[in-house]
Design a protein around this nucleic acid. Structure first.
Lengths: 340, 340
DNA sequence: GTTAGCACTCTATCTGGTTGAGTGCTAACA
DNA sequence: TGTTAGCACTCAACCAGATAGAGTGCTAAC
């Protein structure tokens, strides 16, 4: 069936209204909204068509219509205009970052918080991942007999500490040499090349083969995907009638707390600027009546992690995208401040 | 009024029953429970006295009685016996820690998770604090022109990284000297003495006064209280009728998300083994119908942080304390494994 | 193609009645 | 004096029936 101009007008009006009010919209309401330009009966006919096309749904026979996932998808893909935030709101966002932001944990907490505060949905952010980064420094520090600390600094300014075993009789100067040689070899390179560098140095230096193995082992372990996800705004759930049903709120919170689901979603978006996943488009069952919007953030030009919000499919997508755009800017700026 | 043996028996029966079932207990129920040893009327008289003493409350005229905060306090202080967990349950707790626990964040997440899983309340843990620790190593690593990384290792095995400014023309060997001299001076000492050490070295070495200042500044900032608190088990709220009221659930979640409240509670318990705060004993208004149980955890003998659960005043205190005892043991063991 | 009219559907809300658990009080009892 | 039986009363929870309101689909007329 053709999606005529009028059908589209009706559909978009329903989407807008439903996003704003959360109640199903009937033909009379629409007719009045346009000052009677079309009669309720006409609108009913069109609505009926739209329902057949899978764009509208009826919660029950005598309720108005609500948009389907497909309608939101159409709306988001083709008719969403994302307004710029007012200067004042942009300012508000910045103000959330005005406190000590020395550590990535602080930045993550602030981001999740401002996301939830500005959107009234649940905000979340994934910790920066260590794949895809380049090395700036590798330093090995003897700590006690038989134990050393490796400090890895990436060119993005991310620091990673890793303890590992060394032979008890290891000479401190050897560790010093290792540090220098490794840093020379690896500077500007990806971590993927770490094992090659280790092999090479094993031969060249002719000492401490087992130290390189231990170091390689700990680096491998520590640069495995970082599964840390921070959430904020759990209480926002209750601002939306969708979750006022206790059982639904409970499953939703359980999904958040299990973290796996969102870790997967957030880590899969690494190459896309913005992803919107609506209702049944979500793989995970307990999210099939929610929408998830995610975006990546960068440190020093590299996309290293992502953040986003999750809320009902009846989400104010325009608002969410505006806010996320602004937060993305603030975030990239703050994180690149610590660039090395 | 005297708290006779029989009154006490009735009170404790009500506390136990209410904790188990969550419904008010009436005189008939109690009378039947004891096979009619006392008639309902007698029990009613006693209950009336207990109510006058502030130990019982009535939700409404024709409901049974429920314990007051004061009753829980009495119960917890004088009549609580904390059963040991079964070996199987102890084993279950350990199993939560079987995965990669390389970083403190992992340990925190696992602890919050097991707390909530084993108790059905909300679990939480505060990150280790850096006051009260002793220094094992301080290392300064040049990163780029004008920028260096200080790595602080405590004798408990906590590592802290801090970037700071150095003069662009700073010689790497000077940084090396600084590292060695600082480590020599500070090893085994508390961080409080760091500024003294800096002053001393400033004079002795005769170079880099401004570097010491910058270093001191960043250390001060980085060792400020760590406000990171991890929560788990939000969905457990709904397992308890106390929070099935949406408004109460919302305020509760809001309190959790603001973090401040719990940061304060968790950081104030640093010297006490276990703290139990019941209902109106809680300073914060939104917790006045909840209870908070916290305990400290240690790394290498020092009490560095705390963890706990929060739930309704009608909390299974015995269960919570059993679980926390076991988790405490597991936690101390795991964290001291990384001791230097 | 559009509209008016009409019978119908479904939810939400209000009402009143019933049930069950529990209380406080009084008077009788040991 | 402490304990108990009896009784009138209270309150929340539940159920059933009535009503109002919003909205629909269908048909026939414009």
């Amino acid at each position: 069936m053709e999606l005529s101009e009028r059908k589209l007008k009706i559909l978009l009006a329903i989407v807008d209204d439903y996003i704003a009010t959360g109640t199903p919209i009937g033909s009379r309401t629409l007719s009045r909204m346009w000052g009677g330009a079309y009669s309720p009966a006409t609108i009913r006919n069109e609505m009926s068509d739209l329902e057949e096309m899978g764009l509208l749904q009826q919660p029950h026979t005598s309720a108005g219509r609500i948009p389907s996932d497909l309608a939101y998808r159409l709306y988001v893909d083709r008719f969403l205009n994302v307004p710029r935030l007012t200067d004042q709101e942009a300012q508000t966002i910045r103000s959330y970052y005005r406190f000590r932001m020395g550590e990535i944990e602080d930045v993550m907490a602030a981001t999740a918080h401002v996301l939830s505060q500005m959107t009234d949905y649940v905000g979340m952010i994934l910790a920066p991942q260590l794949d895809n980064v380049t090395v700036s420094q590798i330093r090995v520090i003897p700590v006690t007999r038989g134990r050393a600390l490796a400090v890895l600094v990436t060119s993005e300014g991310i620091v990673k500490d890793m303890f590992f075993q060394i032979p008890p009789n290891m000479d401190d100067r050897h560790l010093e040499m290792m540090s220098n040689a490794l840093t020379d070899l690896m500077r500007g390179k990806s971590l993927d090349e770490f094992s090659v560098a280790c092999e090479k140095l094993k031969e060249e230096l002719g000492v401490g083969a087992e130290v390189f193995d231990a170091l390689l082992g700990t680096v491998r372990k520590s640069t495995a995907p970082v599964r840390s996800v921070v959430f904020d705004g759990h209480q926002n759930l209750f601002k939306h009638p969708e979750y006022s049903n206790v059982e639904r709120a409970r499953t939703f919170l359980a999904t958040i707390d299990s973290r796996d689901v969102f870790y997967n979603m957030l880590s899969q978006t690494n190459n896309m600027e913005i992803t919107i996943s609506i209702g049944r488009e979500n793989e995970h069952e307990s999210l099939q009546d929610s929408s998830v919007v995610t975006a990546t953030y960068r440190i020093g030009g590299h996309s290293v992690g992502s953040f986003g919000v999750v809320g009902p499919t009846r989400m104010d997508y325009a608002r969410v995208l505006s806010v996320m755009e602004q937060i993305s800017a603030a975030l990239n700026e703050i994180l690149s401040g610590s660039e090395v």
